[in-house]
Deep mutational scan, measured.
Amino acid sequence: NQASVVANQLIPINVALTLVMMRSEVVTPVGIPAEDIPRLVSMQVNRAVPLGTTLMPDMVKGYA
């Protein structure tokens, strides 16, 4: 099963993503693939993302 990107903490809106904010985990439904974590660094989410939430492509500005 493919690992997805999961919030490692509350990720506020309009804050640049850092490695420490994200972890990889096998979850259902599948979200952004874990291998895209380096690409996500410095991008921003378009809504607050609670701890443990799977990041979906539509949550990250400029990802999709």
Rank of each mutant, 00 (worst) to 15 (best):
N1R: 04
N1P: 15
Q2K: 07
Q2E: 15
Q2H: 13
A3H: 10
A3G: 09
A3R: 07
A3D: 07
S4I: 02
V5K: 01
V6C: 05
V6Y: 02
V6A: 02
A7W: 03
A7M: 04
A7K: 02
N8K: 08
N8C: 08
Q9A: 13
L10N: 13
L10Y: 12
L10D: 15
L10S: 13
I11H: 00
I11W: 02
P12N: 14
P12L: 05
I13C: 13
I13F: 09
I13Y: 15
N14D: 14
N14M: 07
V15F: 14
A16W: 10
A16F: 09
L17T: 00
L17I: 11
T18L: 06
T18M: 07
L19C: 11
L19E: 07
L19Y: 13
V20S: 15
M21N: 05
R23W: 03
S24H: 10
S24D: 06
S24L: 05
S24M: 12
E25Y: 05
E25A: 14
E25P: 01
V26K: 06
V26H: 10
V26T: 12
V27E: 02
V27K: 06
T28A: 10
T28N: 12
T28K: 06
P29V: 06
P29Y: 03
P29H: 05
P29C: 05
P29G: 03
V30W: 12
V30H: 12
V30M: 15
V30F: 14
G31A: 03
G31E: 01
G31C: 03
I32N: 00
P33C: 07
P33G: 05
P33M: 06
P33F: 11
A34W: 06
E35G: 11
D36N: 11
D36K: 11
D36Y: 12
D36T: 08
I37P: 01
I37M: 14
P38E: 11
P38V: 11
P38I: 09
P38F: 11
P38A: 12
R39K: 15
R39E: 05
L40M: 07
L40W: 03
L40D: 02
L40A: 00
L40G: 00
L40R: 00
V41R: 06
V41I: 14
S42A: 11
S42C: 15
M43K: 09
M43W: 07
Q44H: 14
V45P: 03
V45G: 00
V45E: 01
V45N: 00
V45I: 10
R47Y: 10
R47H: 10
R47V: 12
A48Y: 09
A48D: 15
V49E: 01
P50Y: 10
P50E: 11
G52L: 03
G52Y: 04
T53H: 15
T54F: 03
T54Q: 03
T54A: 05
T54K: 04
T54V: 08
L55K: 02
M56R: 11
P57N: 05
P57A: 10
D58L: 10
D58V: 10
D58H: 13
D58P: 06
M59H: 09
V60A: 01
V60R: 00
V60M: 06
K61C: 15
K61E: 09
K61G: 07
K61L: 10
K61Q: 11
G62K: 09
G62H: 10
G62E: 12
Y63G: 04
Y63F: 11
A64H: 14
A64L: 12
